[in-house]
């Protein structure tokens, strides 16, 4: 029996080792490798509580293994164990020690809870209005006059104040490598703050079941050096030009087929703002930003993202599709 138990313990440990070394998470979405202050604070608390709990686990498992080996019934044995009622001393010990441990854990917990809740924007911080839609994210910078979707640009080192709005169902805004999540709740405005300590690309996820496309409601956070961020803002404010004949045709097609949703005419059927579509790095937040993928999306959005609200644009001729694609890709 004890050999089997040992084997099981080995298995668990090797699994742990495997998980920790062989297939460790990716820094773009790893809670254990945070790149922002909020994420660091959260990791601190995670590790702190983990090691505390590991200590408790070690005590339990030591007694456990000892008891199982020492007091197992041996062949031919027929002993009458003493029918103890308990031990007041022991019981007090294992009541008081956990209370003390939890008290120790409670102090930083309450501390961090209040620190992370303090999301008031200061002069230096960037304000972003985040809106979760089925199944895409809208980001608006009210102070900068910039609006984007699926991609959140933030300057490194600055506190980003997020105002989180919802319109349809619940979603949850989560950038694992930068910090924990806040729910998107229709009819309610939530706030949270984030920052990135180093430039890079971070994955964002929707973490609340929101329908068929929930698994694919991804977004990207780009943390840029402040100078680069300012350049990005300037670019976003510069209207894109229509240069070629194909783009002109594409513009016409866009006006005829897409404006209803993509220009906010019908608030119930709102699609992402596409005026700077060419700057994006993903199609629908998940596919690489190529013309081929854009066409794939246009022809059948639901095949790419189940439940997507966008209708199929499969009635265009090949030329029309090319023109529309070229037009969209030129929106830089």
């Amino acid at each position: 029996m004890s050999r089997q138990r040992l084997w099981r313990a080995l298995l668990v440990f090797s699994l742990a080792a495997l998980a920790l070394s062989g297939c460790s998470g990716d820094p773009s979405l790893n809670v254990l490798e945070p790149s922002g202050t909020a994420g660091e604070k959260q990791l601190n608390l995670i590790m702190w509580s983990f090691f505390l709990m590991l200590g408790v686990f070690a005590v339990v498992i030591t007694i456990f293994v000892y008891v199982l080996i020492r007091f197992r019934k041996r062949k031919g044995q027929d002993r009458m164990p003493e029918q103890t009622h308990g031990s007041t001393l022991l019981e007090i010990v294992w009541t008081v020690i956990p209370i003390v441990l939890l008290g120790i854990l409670a102090v930083p917990t309450v501390n961090y809870t209040f620190e992370l809740a303090d999301a008031k924007p200061d002069e230096d911080s960037i304000r972003v209005k985040v809106t979760g839609h089925q199944y895409w994210w809208e980001f608006e910078y009210p102070d900068l006059g910039v609006k984007t979707a699926q991609e959140l640009y933030i300057p490194v080192g600055k506190k980003v104040h997020l105002e989180i709005h919802g319109k349809d169902v619940l979603h949850s805004f989560w950038v694992p490598a930068l910090g924990g999540k806040t729910d998107v709740i229709p009819g309610r405005v939530n706030t949270m703050w984030l920052d990135a300590k180093k430039p890079g690309k971070y994955q964002g996820k929707c973490a609340e079941l929101c329908g068929a496309g929930h698994a694919l409601m991804d977004f990207v956070v780009y943390a840029k050096e402040p100078a680069e961020f300012d350049k990005w803002v300037a670019q976003m404010k510069q209207p894109a030009k229509v240069a070629t004949a194909a783009q002109k045709e594409g513009e016409q097609l866009f006006l005829q087929n897409c404006m209803g949703c993509h220009a906010g005419v019908n608030p119930k059927l709102q699609g992402p703002d596409l005026s700077k579509f060419g700057t994006r790095t993903t199609i629908a937040g998940i596919l690489p930003h190529t013309e081929e993928n854009l066409k794939k999306w246009l022809k059948n959005p639901e095949a790419v993202k189940p439940g997507a609200k966008m209708p199929k644009i499969d009635y265009l001729t090949q030329e029309e599709l090319d023109a529309l694609t070229e037009y969209l890709m030129s929106r830089k």
Partner: peptide, 10 residues
């Protein structure tokens, strides 16, 4: 622990 839960939740 709420701050840690912001990461674990869902």
């Amino acid at each position: 622990l709420p701050p840690a839960d912001y990461q674990y939740q869902d």
